[in-house]
């Protein structure tokens, strides 16, 4: 189960409304390498992990990803909440607004809805761990693209925090991969 903590993992400071940036940020909210994908990926794969270290790590990183999803949602909310329909039209978000007003809905930055096809789970810990390490690198790259697209110091600060977390998760998944590999080797009989 999960319990809610009524706080963010990291503050979200936004200087001014920026619809264009909000649109770009949707990729980390409902896009392929976004935080929702990350959370669902790890929390799905954990069931078939062979060691307690890996089960713990997948549970804890998956949980942290949900906190990151909340951070991205908060950024989008703050960047869009004061927009008028006219400004939304100018930012080319009229198609989104027509359906959902200012709902923070899991789509990518060009409007594709989130889908489980973004993630994988093979029931094979080595394959899954490699996917997860790749996913962390793809998310790191995406954050670097987003940082280059923003001129808001608050937004950049939060994006830098999220980017750094991808690096740490990559490191921890790498350690888990080594341990799981040793564990599987030790169980082989010839």
């Amino acid at each position: 189960m999960w319990l809610y903590e009524k706080k963010l993992e990291y503050p979200v400071r936004v200087d001014k409304m920026d619809l264009r940036m909000a649109k770009y940020l949707f990729t980390q909210y409902g896009g392929p390498d976004g935080e929702l994908s990350a959370a669902i990926r790890y929390l799905t794969q954990r069931f078939t992990m062979p060691t307690n270290r890996a089960k713990g790590l997948f549970t804890d990183i998956g949980t942290e990803e949900m906190a990151h999803w909340e951070i991205i949602g908060t950024m989008i909310y703050k960047l869009t909440k004061d927009a008028t329909p006219e400004q939304i039209k100018e930012a080319d978000l009229g198609g989104f607004y027509a359906i959902r007003n200012k709902a923070v809905f899991p789509v990518d930055s060009v409007g594709n809805p989130w889908t489980a096809s973004y993630i994988q789970a093979h029931g094979d810990p080595i394959a899954d761990l490699h996917e997860d390490m790749a996913a962390e690198q793809k998310a790191r790259a995406t954050y670097e693209h987003l940082i280059r697209l923003s001129d808001d110091p608050g937004v950049i600060d939060t994006l830098r925090f999220l980017r750094e977390r991808e690096v740490v998760h990559f490191q921890r998944f790498g350690e888990a991969l080594n341990y799981v590999q040793e564990h599987l080797e030790s169980k082989k009989y010839y």
Binding site: L8, E9, P11, L57, D60, R172, E175
Partner: peptide
Amino acid sequence: ALIEIMELEFVLIELNLYLDTHP
């Protein structure tokens, strides 16, 4: 007070992940 809690919680999250692979 809230920011202090958030900072401390972050350190705990980081240590938690570290301990998962360095028990």
